[in-house]
């Protein structure tokens, strides 16, 4: 076997590791005193109190978007549920009885954030730009598993925090206010029938 012998000439003092030790001490004490006296180089962020700025493209918790008139954008096409590799989106579609401008709307839209791997494929898949991950909510931490199931209205940021229910089949709405809170959608003609 061919062996290449590399000789390192460290000099007489180098054999006692002295120059290296002194250089190391110099570096270490520079950092020590700079940090002790001026707190200059510390890079630690005190996390829960101070949060580091996150990039615009950071994939945080999902949210469902609305039209300008406050209407939910999602048309319950199931593309996101289909593509989700973690199988964590659960949609139930319902016909929109009052509003002719939409065919379907999601009566149930649950995302189990505990199973979600934050891959962002649902966002890519959506044809309506109805689901986004730009809430900048980085850490989801609860003491209860159920709280990770985000329902439709939670994703719309409407329901209070304690209303976590999974797979609740929201019954068909009986009035437009009930169907879509704050809806200003086009009211169907046959509503009066």
């Amino acid at each position: 076997m061919k062996v290449k012998v590399v000789t390192r000439d460290v000099g007489f003092l180098g054999k006692f590791y002295l120059p290296a030790v002194l250089m190391g001490l110099w570096l270490v004490s520079r950092h020590f005193f700079a940090n002790l006296l001026f707190n200059k180089m510390t890079v630690t962020i005190n996390y829960p109190e101070v949060k580091r700025p996150i990039a615009k493209r950071w994939r945080g918790r999902h949210r469902l978007t609305r039209h300008e008139n406050g209407f939910i954008k999602c048309v319950a096409c199931f593309l996101c549920e289909e593509i989700c590799p973690a199988n964590c989106i659960h949609i139930k579609s319902a016909e929109m009885p009052f509003d002719k401008s939409v065919e379907k709307y999601p009566s149930v839209f649950d995302i189990d954030e505990l199973r979600c791997i934050f891959c962002g494929l649902c966002v890519e898949a959506c044809p309506k730009d109805a689901i986004r991950m730009d809430t900048e909510i980085v850490s989801l931490a609860f003491t209860d598993r159920k709280k990770f199931d985000y329902t439709r209205n939670l994703l719309l940021d409407e329901a209070p925090d304690n209303k976590h229910t999974k797979y609740t089949n929201v019954p068909l709405p009986t009035s437009i206010e009930e169907a879509l809170p704050n809806s200003k959608g086009v009211v169907a003609d046959d509503l009066t029938n």
Binding site: H31, F32, N35, M41, T42, V43, N46
Partner: peptide
Amino acid sequence: KWSALIQDRR
């Protein structure tokens, strides 16, 4: 604490 100061931590 000192090692943290040396390594730019808190």
